[in-house]
Amino acid sequence: MLVRVLIASGLCLAGINLAAVSSFVVSLTAVVLLAFVEPLFLRLWGTTPGKALLGMRLTGPDGKNVPYTEGLARYFLMMWYGQGFEIPVWSLIQGYRSVRRCWDDEPQPWDVEVAYIAKPFRARYGVGLVLATLLVLTAGEAANSWSQTPPNRGDVTVAEFAENYNRQADYLGFGGRTYLDETGQWQEEPGNPNAVTVGDFGIEPWPEARELHFTLEDGHITAITLTGTIENVEEGVDTPNGLVPRIVMSLAWGREEASFWSLARQAQMTELERRDWSKDFVIHQPGVVITSDIQQSGLSYHANSFCDWHAEQPENALSFTYTVALDNG
């Protein structure tokens, strides 16, 4: 677990989102890394972190630390006979066989030429193991949470906000080829001319609805607004309320008022996703106030923020203003 958390933390700190990495790749990397680390620990100290926390040492028959080559051979035997090299199904079979050997008081194949030295069990060993586990998991979650923080923190200019948005879009995997330039205007990266792509915002026929309007004070952003008005829609039309959570994570997650931990941030996003964006509301979240102001007639709202035209009432209108404002109070 310690090695896997270290690998996961390293990926986060390197700017690689764990959601985009296969768990099998992490497990395989851990297996390879442990092949070097575990024999080294046994050679130098005769124990590993887990064994040390439980008051255990492992030596050769002569009482000396296991040589590195023998520790390496023991590791591969343990991975095959004990964990089946993490191969699906086979690992469960090998694990079951290991349990049966324990029940039958038989030595494990990887421990035939070694001796265990264990101190009498003390409650502090169990407490230490639990505390160490919590420490490792907390450190891993801290790395994960830090990796979701935008590069520019505190008060930001339009250019810094654009950099934050583009980084969050790249790390969290939204936005497609659309990005913000340093003036806060939407741009689109050229794509494969032979590929058929679907826009991320439903640009047509209402591109002005997704334009960001910035309120500045001393050159720094105090609010970002999305606004639009349309009448007599003959088909459905998308509103850009899906942009609001992305604005929040790019503008507010780097501020002191924002929670550092990813679970609190996810709860913040969930609250926005569950809101009924067809109605007026004001939400106070850490560091920001999100406002929805909707005026509409002849349209119905669906969960995907889609306004559908009523055939029996051809005249319709929609006007909205979404605002994300800093809350310094």
Rank of each mutant, 00 (worst) to 15 (best):
M269V: 11
Q83K: 14
T321P: 00
E38I: 15
G128M: 08
F24T: 15
D200W: 06
R4Q: 12
F174G: 12
Y322R: 05
Y125N: 07
E211C: 12
E208G: 10
S297T: 09
W309C: 12
Q108C: 10
W103F: 11
Q313V: 14
T229D: 15
Q83S: 12
R122K: 14
G199P: 04
A35Y: 12
Y68F: 11
T239P: 06
I224K: 07
T197Y: 08
I7R: 03
T239R: 07
C307N: 09
A115Q: 09
A8M: 07
S27R: 10
T225K: 07
L134S: 05
H302C: 09
Q187E: 08
N144Y: 07
R124A: 13
L53S: 00
L251G: 03
V158Y: 10
G50Q: 00
W90L: 08
D308M: 11
L11D: 01
H220M: 12
K51Q: 13
V66H: 04
R100N: 04
A8Y: 04
G95N: 02
T239D: 09
L172E: 03
V196D: 05
N17Q: 09
G126P: 07
R275G: 05
S91L: 13
A209N: 06
W90I: 14
H220E: 09
T59E: 02
V32P: 03
E231G: 06
N316G: 02
S319W: 04
E163K: 13
L42N: 06
I294T: 12
N328I: 08
G287D: 02
A209W: 00
V99C: 12
F85R: 06
V112N: 03
H284E: 14
W80Q: 01
L299M: 10
N232A: 14
E113D: 11
T270R: 14
Y81F: 15
Q168D: 03
K279L: 14
I224G: 01
D181I: 00
V130F: 06
R97D: 01
N192W: 01
G184A: 10
G184W: 02
M1A: 15
Q187G: 06
K279W: 09
G15R: 03
N241F: 14
S305K: 10
K64D: 10
A303T: 07
A317I: 08
F161R: 08
P240K: 08
S319Y: 01
E38K: 15
T59V: 12
Q148C: 15
G191N: 00
N304M: 09
N316Q: 07
